[in-house]
């Protein structure tokens, strides 16, 4: 279906990413059952805007924050843009910096890459999973856009070859064909590869440990979204026996976006005006999504909005 121009969102504002960030933040808040969030550390992959850092500091009170930033040439600019003084910047690539960090503290790590899954991403995942302590969270975001393959005779094969080149043959799950990588298929396979890496690393790490010291992984996030390129985010919680007992099994169940398996939560951003969102807000939670009400806002948009209105960003142009 071709969208008319008023039905398109301005994706430069990255609304899906904004929603994803807030959803994850709400889930992180539930970690308080293990320890005050004040005692957690956050590690992120920098950027000039530091939006994830600002959110976790404002909403959860996380104080110990490390941003890994590879653009050392713009050192002063990055330091100037830090929204809070508690954010430390470690200069270098994630693969260079992650192995040098101490991992004694419970940590929320968000490896938020803006490029496709490759062996360096998997190496970072391995480094983190090999070291983070119980009660920690690892979230990984990668681009998973199959892209249009121009002028290749066999598009499916070209896609599979590209993935094989990036991650290596042995990481690709058995039975995957090139045709499986179209649309959101690549995102599904990327989630599986990252998940397998986590499970395999944990198996090695746990091998010599007695039962209660073994660390288990529980997936919480499996987001698909596209503010432009298609992206996949996969993440979850790492718990040993003692911490496992402190987190009720249904602890995250009421968060509608939590996904423990291969079926993703699609962040679909409704295209609505500010007046329309106000109108719907006044009827939520409740009747806004029912089919016949109100008919001048398309039902599909109403349903999308009802599923994520608590996280929906409002953008206003302001002259300051």
């Amino acid at each position: 279906m071709n969208l008319r121009s008023f039905e398109k969102f301005n994706y430069a504002l990255r609304p899906a990413k904004n929603i994803e960030r807030k959803m994850m933040c709400e889930a992180f808040g539930r970690l308080s059952t293990l320890a005050s969030l004040r005692r957690y550390r956050y590690i992120g992959l920098g950027g000039l805007s530091f939006q994830d850092f600002a959110l976790l500091h404002q909403r959860l009170g996380v104080h110990d924050m490390t941003s890994i930033e590879k653009e050392e040439d713009a050192r002063e600019r990055f330091l100037h843009n830090r929204p809070y003084s508690c954010i430390r910047v470690r200069w270098g690539s994630s693969s260079t910096v992650l192995p040098t960090l101490s991992w004694r503290k419970r940590t929320i790590v968000w490896l938020d890459y803006d490029y496709p899954l490759d062996d360096s991403v998997l190496a970072d995942v391995r480094t983190v999973v090999a070291h983070l302590c119980s009660g920690s969270v690892l979230v990984t975001t990668v681009e998973a856009d199959p892209k249009r393959v121009k002028s290749a005779r066999n598009v499916a094969k070209a896609r599979l070859d590209a993935l094989r080149e990036r991650v290596g043959e042995e990481k690709i799950p058995r039975g995957i064909r090139g045709a499986d990588l179209r649309a959101w298929g690549l995102a599904r396979v990327c989630r599986e590869i990252i998940h397998n890496e986590i499970i395999e690393t944990l198996a090695h790490r746990n091998a010599p440990l007695a039962g209660r010291w073994r660390i288990g992984y529980e997936q919480l996030f499996n987001f698909h979204y596209a503010d432009g390129a298609q992206m996949v985010t996969v993440g979850g919680l790492f718990l040993n026996g003692a911490d496992r007992a402190r987190v009720p099994t249904d602890h995250f169940d009421d968060l509608g976006f939590v996904r423990s398996g291969n079926d993703p939560y699609h962040i679909e951003v409704p295209v609505l005006t500010w007046r329309e969102t106000r109108y719907l807000d006044a009827r939520l939670p409740g009747t806004a999504a029912v089919p016949h009400h109100p008919s001048w806002i398309p039902e599909g948009e109403r349903r999308k909005y009802a599923s994520l209105y608590r996280y929906f960003p409002t953008y206003l142009e302001a002259e300051l």
């Binding site: 693969s95 480094t127 090999a130 790490r205």
Partner: peptide, 20 residues
């Protein structure tokens, strides 16, 4: 061996900065 599997993870993470 269970011990070696766990230690190999440590070896790999110690290697990376040296390789870089």
């Amino acid at each position: 061996s269970p011990v070696y599997r766990a230690v190999a993870l440590e070896m790999k993470s110690l290697m990376r900065p040296v390789i870089d």
